[in-house]
């Protein structure tokens, strides 16, 4: 590839010696213009704090997921030991714990892959980014699948609770379903956006 590029370029340079000289004359002026470009100076200490906050934020999100999963596990164990929860709630908790563990495991797997990529050598940055995009798409798919699972789990749970307690749950049912619809639509929107970006990036890689 390099040889082809070099050969083609030699032809270009050989055919245009005058243009090349002209370019060299203009080059100094262009360099001066470029290097004297004004720019807005930033407070580097503020930038440093912002940078650390971003890294901390990403880690906190993962930690929050972990804490929530652990809390659910503890809650489930208490439910089984104390025998104070009805069967529907226990089933719902078991379902929640299993899905949460799967979600966390997959998140760690995807995130660790992405973090490892950011530490790689930058020789093939587009290919690296494509891998990153693919993992991001996997993550979005995981959110969508989790939402579908939650949709069925929560609705079954609420219907069973309705039969046991005989209280109207239409408000809760509506709220939860709207929330999940919003989650699913949001995830779908990002999936479409990421797919478009990935397609664009792949074209770039072929070039």
């Amino acid at each position: 590839m390099i040889d082809k590029e070099t050969t083609e370029s030699s032809k270009v340079i050989d055919n245009q010696p005058e243009e090349s000289e002209l370019l060299d004359e203009q080059w100094l002026a262009l360099t001066e213009d470029w290097q004297s470009q004004p720019y807005d100076k930033v407070d580097i200490k503020v930038l440093f704090n912002k940078t650390r906050r971003r890294i901390l934020g990403a880690k906190c999100l993962l930690a929050l997921d972990l804490v929530a999963t652990l809390a659910m596990i503890v809650f489930m164990i208490i439910g089984f030991i104390s025998d104070s929860f009805d069967m529907a709630t226990l089933y719902f908790l078991v379902f929640g714990v299993v899905s949460s563990i799967v979600y966390i495991a997959y998140t760690i797997y995807i995130r660790s892959g992405t973090w490892a990529l950011s530490e790689q050598s930058p020789t093939d940055v587009i290919s690296t980014a494509i891998v990153g995009y693919k993992s991001s798409l996997k993550f979005i798919r995981l959110i969508k699948v989790s939402t579908i699972g939650m949709f069925f789990g929560t609705n079954i749970y609420l219907v069973v609770m309705n039969q046991v307690h005989e209280k109207p749950i239409i408000g809760a049912l509506l709220l939860i379903n709207i929330l999940m619809a919003v989650m699913y639509t949001g995830a779908h929107y990002y999936q479409v956006k990421r797919q478009e970006e990935l397609a664009h990036m792949q074209q770039f890689e072929i070039k």
């Binding site: 590029e5 340079i13 080059w27």
Partner: peptide, 23 residues
């Protein structure tokens, strides 16, 4: 490689001069 830098730079300069119409 440095050679490839030269090749790419020469091409980039040529295209840039066309775009800027510095000739």
């Amino acid at each position: 490689t440095s050679n490839l830098v030269g090749v790419r730079l020469q091409r980039a300069k040529a295209t840039l001069s066309q775009l800027l119409e510095v000739k």
